[in-house]
Amino acid sequence: MNILELCSIVFLVVGAIFFLAGTIGLLRFPDVYTRLQALAKVDNLGLGFTSIGLLFQAPELMIAMKIILIWLLTLVASSTISFLIARRAMKRGVIPWRAKEHIIE
């Protein structure tokens, strides 16, 4: 096993752990805003690690660049979608969950 494969394995496994954490967050967090956070961020980090892990396995430069392009596109996609969902939820009056009883401004 060479050093490239080792790097690849480490990044891929860390990425998979982030995906698991994102899913756990999605199931456990109390309201749509916190769930959005779990999904949009932790999963994005998971995808980031997966992409970097695969970069080490890429047979040629063009493929590596394409993976980076896909990753960047997905980052922009997640950010846009989560903003739209959160804004729409606010407009529809989905009340954010609070740890203690507070008055929402």
């Binding site: 995906f19 994102g22 999605l26 749509v32 769930r35 959005l36 999904l39 949009a40 999963d43 994005n44 998971g46 995808l47 997905t74 996609a77 997640s78 979608i81 989560s82 969902i85 729409r88 939820a89 529809r92 989905v94």
Partner: peptide, 15 residues
């Protein structure tokens, strides 16, 4: 809520 269902779009864009 419907917002929770919309999360499917996000799921498929990352996972």
């Amino acid at each position: 809520t419907t917002a929770d269902r919309l999360l499917a779009a996000l799921l498929f864009s990352t996972s």
